[in-house]
Write a protein that binds this DNA or RNA. Sequence first.
DNA 1: AATAATTTTTAGATTTACCTAAAAATATAA
DNA 2: TTATATTTTTAGGTAAATCTAAAAATTATT
Lengths: 220, 220
Amino acid sequence: MQSFTEENYLKIIYHLAEKTGNVQTNAIAEQMQTKPASVTDMIKKLAEKGFVDYIKYQGVTLTEKGRNAAIEIVRKHRLWEVFLVDKLNFKWDEVHDVAEELEHIKSTALIERLDEFLGFPKSDPHGDPIPDKNGRFAKTQFTKLIDLKIGDQGTITGVSQHSSAFLKHLEKLGLTLGKQIEISDVTDFDGSVEILIAGKQINISREVAKHILTSSNGKN
Amino acid sequence: MQSFTEENYLKIIYHLAEKTGNVQTNAIAEQMQTKPASVTDMIKKLAEKGFVDYIKYQGVTLTEKGRNAAIEIVRKHRLWEVFLVDKLNFKWDEVHDVAEELEHIKSTALIERLDEFLGFPKSDPHGDPIPDKNGRFAKTQFTKLIDLKIGDQGTITGVSQHSSAFLKHLEKLGLTLGKQIEISDVTDFDGSVEILIAGKQINISREVAKHILTSSNGKN
DNA sequence: AATAATTTTTAGATTTACCTAAAAATATAA
DNA sequence: TTATATTTTTAGGTAAATCTAAAAATTATT
Ligand SMILES: [Mn+2]
Ligand SMILES: [Mn+2]
Ligand SMILES: [Mn+2]
Ligand SMILES: [Mn+2]
């Protein structure tokens, strides 16, 4: 059984590893909002407990045990997010912090019954896949909106940024999950993207376009 | 904002105070499953923070602030229990430990929306009253089953013991909330009580009868 | 009222998760 | 390939919540 803190470390290492493989001390420190020295301490403990493989100065990788533990926490986090949105009418930008706490509740029965209550959802309010009770889930295929070319069409299936500010912004622009879009223009000057959505023409910054994920393969 | 541990202390002091007024160090230690020395340390901290009034060797009483904080935790605990039973099909003997964790999730929005989602329930699965968001709730009137006399009738409205073993036992005997009962006999030998429930005659031990609460005023 | 029993508090340690400052290792640049 | 910059680790310390053992205060009993 792990502490809240250990669980948060495992989850963050898992997410960082998805991109970079080997995970660095400083990267963990930044995500955990703590100091590198503290990270080193915790890494040693996690290594001792068999959750990570660790070589001094070389960063960490999750062991099988560590990956399973991390996925279990991700599962809980995302299921609780679905609960908050579907059942308690939270908006998609309001759920993250609460889920951050709820994910640590320890009860296998609870999470399995919650899963059932929610109808075994496959993805969370941000389009991220929900692992099943065996930790399995389909790796999501997506193309970043920023990588689409003029004329390409697609559906919004996810976001790669979960800050409330960003999600609220998308909401206001009508850029929510499931919406159909088409790239109508890309501005040379600032890289901003003009898209057609629900018959309207809107302009979004490059920064926003980077964090919207779509189901288009880019070839229209 | 209080830590989990502080919240657990406050809740326990509140429950103990309901019966005895002034709460003793040893009593808290027993409930918290810790040592009296640790309790003294925590009491000092709670006093410092203004949650309790404390005079050395004289035990503690909750301040207004402390009582409000405690009631808020009780509210959360009981609402989560209702959720677990009503929505996730937990049995009344399975909810306590999970609620013990869920009660510490910090989000006013969460608990208010949960309350609404559950239909603003007035009592939890064990018959205990749920404080509203202002901390108000009707003080429950009840008579212990053990105090009823032969021929008295009543309805089961609560229990004063929440252990899984006890609740499972009641379940098996059919002694659940809302059931009508009548006292048909009291055994001199062991103080056990014979009751009439759903047309059947059953015998329950004195120990069990002590922890069943009824709506009868004792005069049939 | 004096003695014994009980309750409560203090003293001194331990563990977990942090921190700062300094040293060591690794990576980058001149 | 030295020198410089960056990253990571160690050393030494703090705060929260716990513990054991011993001292102090209160309560109960002769
Ligand atoms: Mn978390
Ligand atoms: Mn999410
Ligand atoms: Mn609790
Ligand atoms: Mn209850």
